[in-house]
Design a protein around this nucleic acid. Sequence first.
DNA 1: GCCGTTTTCGGCCCGACTGTTTTCAGTCG
Length: 609
Amino acid sequence: MSNQEITKILEEMAALLEMQGVAFKPRAYEKAATGVEALGEEVQEIYRRGGGKALEEIPGVGRGIAAHIEELLEKGKLQEYERLRKRVPVHVTELMSVEGVGPMMVKVLWEKLRVRTLADLERAARAGKIRRLPRFGEKSEQKILRGIAFLRGTAGRRTLGVALSDARRLEAVIRAFPEVEDAAVAGSLRRWKETIGDIDVLAASADPQKVTERFLALPDVARVYGTGETQTRVRLKNGMDADLRVVAPQSWGAALNYFTGSKEHNVALREIAVKKGWKLNEYGLFARSRTSPGLSPRRSGLQPREGGKSDFGACIAGRTEGEIYKKLGLRYIEPELREDTGEIEAARHDFAAQNRGGQARKNKLPALIGYRDLKGDLQVQTDWTDGEDSIEKMAQAARDAGLEYIAITDHTKGLAMTGGADEKKLMRQMREIDLLNKKFKSLKFKILKGAEVNIGKNGSLDIDDAMLARLDVVGAAVHSHFTLSRQEQTARIIRAMENPHVDIIFHLTGRIIAKRASIDLDIDAVIAAAKSTGTVLEVNAYPDRLDIRDAYIRKAVAADVRLSIDSDAHAAAHFKLLEYGIATARRGWAEKKDVVNAWPVDKMLSMLK
DNA sequence: GCCGTTTTCGGCCCGACTGTTTTCAGTCG
């Protein structure tokens, strides 16, 4: 059973328990689902290695849920889940994917109207049956119909690359509003997550109403889901949803932190605040007043619409994110790390150590590689194969992008469709590179000779060793046989790494986000082989690949395996894609020292085989 | 059901918005 399937069942468990009115358990199951989803490894594998005890190491999974997962893996089903489903035998996930429909609605719809599927829901809504239910009305019914239409249309998350340029444009437009002091893209985009659900933009302004009006008047806005004093949700004409929040400038840092997430990171921060007797929300960090300790504004009956500040004392921090982390006793945590996967513990240790004089420890926050740290690019295609531009033009573009060197890594003959090079063609290309290097010498830019050789079904390469030995940079990659067994794929990759000339494995898992699954690999075995053979693992920056992914990068970094961050450029304009690769490496806790092409060319070359 | 720099028991994040209601439940992020 795959992680995805387990995640779905845990999420359904949460919803089913919620319907029964069970307290706290739903949150526990949701947390466990998030924990499983974020894993860089198959649960099946963890279980095979360490049994039920190892499952408890998964974040959010304790004894109870570990036993459930074990049952799922052993028997393929879960008795407790089947039992709950008998009481409300509906397609929970499907129904809840409709905007505005949650567990309680699903329950009522089942009990009163016998709604089981999306089709049932649509029929009931069209027949006008939903508006007659208690606490439903005509608007709820219309909203459900709109939600279903949306789902049938362009449902699902977009890849990072598709969302980011639109988000940046929107940010610039909003920042230019006269009432706006500052604006920023927040949410999963600011964390550079590989897929994005919607665009979150935050604005600081003393006149939120005016800002909201201007936002709603933008030509990009196709539909308004809802709008209030501080928060507006719309559908854009490009098919994405956007969420604008407007806060006062003194709350900028708190709001930015809150709307950047992740949700799990935020919850953890708030729990730290609570333990210190404070409260953290999107307006700031506040001390609780003595008059109504522990009561939420709503329960205490004090004007709930005043931003929740009414029964709390002075604001301790909020203008910047930095001061909030500091007050909470944490070192500043970069957005890419905010997933509650150990960064908070590390930040606490760092902060404590700083106050003790800063001795070195394990478990500390990484000094992340910076967005300007790359000196070279080790995967570049040209018009010698399937690239658009000449070697010279690519070199010029790389230099313009601030790089000091590139490796030309055109495809080899195994990829006949790209006009892949054989040994002879590679020799010709090497001679041309020699000529061009004379030209570029005065510009302090170097073109390296390389290739993207093809890994065959059994791990063999399509270029002979004598030729590979003459190249500066040899990348090897899988381009076919994507459906071999885990054992075969793993053996194939390891055999390629054992070749003394293979420096880098390009886009290891071969995935195309939202299109093609990764090849089935024993990632730990591959990382161990990379370490023992001195092979570099690429972080392919192409936004549809981001391969290896963040969780694998983190494993590689922990195992002291070197990485390269490459654009896989097929045109001069593609060097700007490197930022996606850097961001993904940062999400994997990579430092400059882990990334070979962040080093000067001579040092980099001396590190390769 | 999970978890631990107050805890192995007793807590568990917080607010905005909507729709249907005269004070709040549900959903969302």
